[in-house]
Design a protein around this nucleic acid. Structure first.
Lengths: 127, 127
DNA sequence: TCGTGTATGATAATTGATTATCATGCTGTG
DNA sequence: CACAGCATGATAATCAATTATCATACACGA
């Protein structure tokens, strides 16, 4: 398989070009639906995600209860939009100022996440 | 039991005075540890949470994968802080401006959540 | 007091996500 | 070609959260 991509690479690369973090299941469906790729098993998806995180290529992102999504590490600072209809997560660029002013006395902040909820462009147009 | 509080009321009231949203399990441990209250079963906690949401008294809050927390409805607009050490969630007052500027073209935002991560005052002092 | 209905607790059952297992097939080497 | 080792897929096993079940106990009205 030296001239073809390994399944693991397919997982990593799919996330590299995705427009938002994806769960194991989303990734699985996405890869299976692509006719130019061979089929892939869900076990391989989980294995690749785990390895990707261990290798520092991927970062887990928890936006909801019940599922962990993954994104490429090394992306610019960004946040996420979660569509209430299709439940896909999208990256959104930029950030806001003055987050520190929210911090209560005595607390120490190491990072933050901003989550926007609503309708993504696709679902808004379809609805 | 007319002069005492029902278990359901105890759950609702515990959340009313909590300093952040709590999961079923957190609530259960909290209520059991309070010597002035009778013991309570985990089933009752889940039942009360479900009923509280149906009645509009409680709101589910999803900050992580793996657990749903609940808070009183009708709180002022606020956000949350999640302690990486004790994993408790705290309410934080206030908000920030210009969130709309993050929204991609064609998307529609209905609500948002800001999550701060780090050490809470207790853990910071203890650590 | 008797009967009905609600509240409760213990625990079994379910569910969804994730991990472990195991057999297969392919790669590259000696 | 035979062998060792890794990648893979199907699926069983695990795990945590949640829900369903069922028997008990108490409150309240007839």
């Amino acid at each position: 398989m030296s001239e073809n991509k390994s399944k693991h690479q397919q997982v990593i690369e799919a996330l590299a070009v995705a427009d938002g973090p994806m769960s194991a299941n989303e990734l699985w469906e996405h890869l299976r639906s692509n006719p130019s790729l061979n089929s892939i098993g869900i076990a391989t998806v989980y294995r690749s995600l785990k390895k990707g995180v261990e290798d520092g290529e991927l970062v887990p992102v928890e936006l909801e209860s019940g599922s962990v999504r993954y994104e490429s590490s090394g992306l610019q600072h960004h946040h996420h939009f979660l569509c209430s209809t299709c439940s896909r997560a999208y990256d959104v660029e930029g950030c806001v100022k003055n987050l520190e002013k929210l911090l209560p006395q005595g607390f120490e902040m190491t990072r933050h996440e901003i989550l926007l909820y609503g309708l993504c462009a696709d679902c808004k147009m379809a609805g």
